[in-house]
Design a protein around this nucleic acid. Structure first.
Lengths: 140, 140
DNA sequence: TACATATTTGCAACTTTGTTGCAAAACAAA
DNA sequence: TTTGTTTTGCAACAAAGTTGCAAATATGTA
């Protein structure tokens, strides 16, 4: 794991630092998406708030993570799949938000249906956010 | 217009006040969705920030407007169609965000395609946000 | 390994955004 | 009108995010 995240950072031409390794590990260990506050909590205030902001921003720019649209005012981030290149995200997968446990999942294996836009509109990206109850909460 | 918004407020059992009338008019006059900051600007600082926050919150609760998920950290609101009852929104239409002018449109006449969820997941609502270039910007 | 350079971090101060309690003002019903 | 309820604006606060800069860390080269 430790080695894996360093490789990812190097591939993105980023200096390998403690904060970047730790934060990237959090994403790899987490089943759902993470918000800034989650990372602050997970790291036990080890890093400055500013460092976390800047690290997340850098990861987004480098295509390592992407932000997920939410109706409440919290930005959540999740790992991008390999086909996310720098600058341009084509993370065309579905995000599922569980109403019970609050976890946000990326459903990578669910394909996004094509949307028929009105005349004159052209699309570059489609985000689908399904809310409901997740597998774990339905079983409980 | 003036009369129309008063009717809407009464139907939702809300007191008809200056701020509510003005803010509701802004939504009727706007082609796209509005954020808190837009309303502050449109009203020319006529109303207190707090009043705008509370008015928007009340409108959401009464099913007059709904919030739109965004990837950046700004909540935007748009008018609900008639079938939005108090407490429960089934605004199952597509939201389109223009990358050029930043306007958010509700595409009411575009139907949301069904999504095939993995085993164990149940859905209560589906939001689709398409980003790209809108009709006006494509023409220009 | 040590050095020089470039990048990143943490701190402090600040801005923006959103919340809460309460008295004054506006509204609704009689 | 008058009375009781709701809403507004103010003030103070809390949370979230940004910026500049010096110290610390990482990288490439010798």
């Amino acid at each position: 794991m430790e080695a894996a995240v360093s490789e990812i950072l190097k591939r993105s031409q980023l200096s390998v630092t403690d904060s970047r390794k730790r934060i990237l590990e959090f994403f790899h260990q987490s089943s759902g998406a993470l918000a800034h506050a989650d990372i602050e909590r997970l790291s036990g205030e080890q890093f400055d708030r500013v460092t976390i902001y800047r690290t997340l921003q850098t990861f987004v720019e480098k295509g390592i993570i992407h932000s997920i649209p939410t109706a409440d005012n919290s930005i959540r981030y999740a790992l991008c799949k390999d086909d996310c290149a720098e600058g341009h995200h084509h993370d065309n997968h579905i995000h599922f938000v569980c109403d019970k446990c609050g976890t946000t999942f990326c459903l990578d294996h669910v394909s996004i249906p094509a949307v028929q836009l009105p005349m004159g509109f052209t699309s570059s990206q489609t985000d689908v956010i399904v809310s409901g109850v997740c597998k774990q909460c339905n079983a409980a």
